[in-house]
């Protein structure tokens, strides 16, 4: 019939498959950048609105599946543990470990890292360095996560003096600047 209708239906099916099955499955596959790349090849065909919608919904239903919840919690703890040890001397080794964690649980790992960066400026340089091991899918998710943090309500963007940027925003901006250099 109508090719436009067919495309619309195809898009809905692809989005369904990604949201209900492919993205959650990624969380249960031990770090495998090839799977992430394959998912990206599919996702990159979708407009950013559709991708961001999927990212926003991702992990929302995890509570219904104990295995996903466990994978997420483990990824969060592992990320914090590695971030604590991240320093100039072990950058290469730990940077790869961060990327490995992100391959399986990009949303959890990147959210955790961006959250930490807002509080600890010292982390920016080592994290930016570690991020050179991220895949295209993970970079796309990272952009989403940063926008999500910016859009998050309930915190001031300016300090009490009304002139200077809040520390979290200053850190986030500095992080993004370093990353895009």
């Amino acid at each position: 019939g109508n090719p436009h209708l067919h495309l619309k239906e195809a898009r809905l099916r692809v989005e369904d498959a990604l949201g209900a099955c492919l993205l959650p499955s990624l969380q249960l596959v031990p770090a495998n950048p090839a799977v992430g790349q394959e998912i990206w090849e599919l996702m990159s065909l979708l407009p950013y609105e559709a991708r961001y919608h999927l990212y926003g919904e991702w992990e929302k239903d995890d509570d219904r599946y104990p295995m996903l919840l466990a994978a997420r919690q483990t990824a969060k703890l592992d990320t914090r543990r590695i971030l604590k040890r991240l320093a100039k001397e072990n950058l290469k080794q730990l940077g790869r470990m961060v990327a490995k964690l992100a391959h399986a649980n990009p949303m959890t790992v990147l959210r955790t890292i961006v959250h930490q960066i807002e509080a600890y400026r010292d982390m920016i340089t080592p994290v930016v360095d570690a991020f050179k091991y991220l895949t295209q899918l993970e970079y796309d998710i990272l952009e989403y996560v940063v926008i999500e943090r910016l859009a998050l309500g309930g915190r001031d963007k300016l300090k009490d003096d009304g002139l200077n940027l809040s520390d979290w925003l200053q850190s986030l901006a500095s992080f993004w600047g370093h990353l895009k250099q």
């Binding site: 067919h6 239906e9 195809a10 099916r13 692809v14 498959a17 492919l22 596959v29 090849e41 599919l42």
Partner: peptide
């Protein structure tokens, strides 16, 4: 299997895109 599913879906979506263009 995951990779295969992704590839099949990609082909399916691309063919739908082609029909429109």
């Amino acid at each position: 299997l995951l990779q295969k599913v992704c590839r099949v879906l990609r082909g399916y979506y691309l063919s739908a895109l082609e029909l429109v263009s």
